[in-house]
Design a protein around this nucleic acid. Structure first.
Lengths: 218, 218
DNA sequence: GTCTATAAATAGATAGAC
DNA sequence: GTCTATCTATTTATAGAC
């Protein structure tokens, strides 16, 4: 969704929130996350938004365009939050912690983020438009700048940014995307798979990422 | 594919390898990895195997059953290789290294593994049958046993097995599944995203995993 | 084992009334 | 802005000939 656009106060009727475009957008994000691009049905999206299918083609031009818009919105938000992270005067180590926290916050704020991102990776980024690629590049470059800063200050060892990124984003997305699967495994006899403390996960990933970066104090 | 079944020697004609069932299985794994379950078409699978669509229903009973069989085969192979890893007399640290290597080897031997696994996570494990869940549980339990052994020997700190697992499997799959996407990013201006050394990735993940586990030598 | 032909359902998309 | 009705293509699946 481009801009939430300051809306006048409205009776917030339980299930009837937002403009028709917003409702379609939300319903579509959910549907694409659950079923993937090919598996998603414009009929189901419209029904979930309590609208007719034709409204999707009125507000967006096609199923593919709607999906691209969701991807763009998603990475625009991630890129913005991550960028804010790096602009502070904090220590490099704290910036790494903030980077991890930023990804986690976006993954929680937009539950469709981890599943959609996993699917898009599997598809080789087939649906990413140029703007979205730019946002992803921003995330990578921001992390790269933090790492570089830490190395320059002799706090970090020289480590490839993409390895650091994979070490943070891989586990984080795996955790947030696997809620449903972990429940399934729990039922299948893997004890402890279902319940999991969000803060413990974030703290662990922060610690591991810093472990891989920081020089042992001399 | 249940058992490769000792086949008599056959003229290995360039593109005509294997029984019709094997060809369908291979083509299907590729198609499911590229397009996901919903996006895959039985017509395309059959065509890629140079067979008719009806043959899929002859050898397998449905598209869903074929997909489930691929998932089962995949995790059976992973579980077996990982189990072999833990049966040795090696040090706990070396077993962790071997675990990482085992996942990497399977991901390379079956290129459809990482994308299919990402998609299945996104779908909450909807297509996993009981046997497959057992294999996944075996992988988790094997890693758990290694961690426990290391803790008992006072070499590892007490760390939740699922966190260790996420720290290994998350980055590894992310790396192997993102080959296509990284090329796309490289073209989009992220230098160094495309080229990447497989051994460097595995070594890094081994090091990071052990960092998060091992007690500092006293 | 392998094929053709076809059934039956569902998909994305559009025209046009209101 | 929102709807109904419909077109067209594609889908999974099956029947039955060879």
């Amino acid at each position: 969704m481009p801009k939430p656009a300051a809306r006048p106060a409205r009776p917030p009727s339980a299930r009837d929130r937002g403009t028709s475009k917003e409702r379609l957008f939300t319903a579509a994000a959910r549907e694409f996350a659950q079923r993937g691009f090919a598996g998603a049905s414009v009929d189901r999206i419209a029904a979930a938004a309590r609208l007719n299918k034709a409204m999707i083609y009125y507000h967006f031009t096609s199923k593919a365009a709607l999906y691209r818009e969701i991807l763009r919105d998603l990475f625009e938000a991630v890129a913005r939050r991550v960028s804010d992270t790096a602009r502070s005067q904090a220590e490099p180590a704290d910036k790494i912690r903030a980077f991890v926290e930023a990804i986690a916050i976006e993954a929680e704020a937009r539950p469709h983020f981890p599943p959609i991102w996993f699917r898009e990776i599997a598809e080789g980024g087939a649906h990413l438009d140029a703007a979205t690629v730019t946002h992803i590049a921003t995330v990578l470059k921001t992390l790269g700048a933090i790492v570089k800063e830490g190395i320059a200050a002799d706090r970090f060892r020289p480590v490839n940014t993409l390895l650091v990124h994979a070490g943070i984003v891989g586990p984080l997305l795996l955790y947030f995307a696997s809620t449903g699967l972990r429940r399934r495994l729990e039922r299948g006899g893997v004890r402890g798979a279902g319940g999991f403390d969000r803060n413990a996960v974030v703290a662990h990933i922060q610690r591991v990422a810093l472990n891989s970066l920081e020089r042992p104090p001399s």
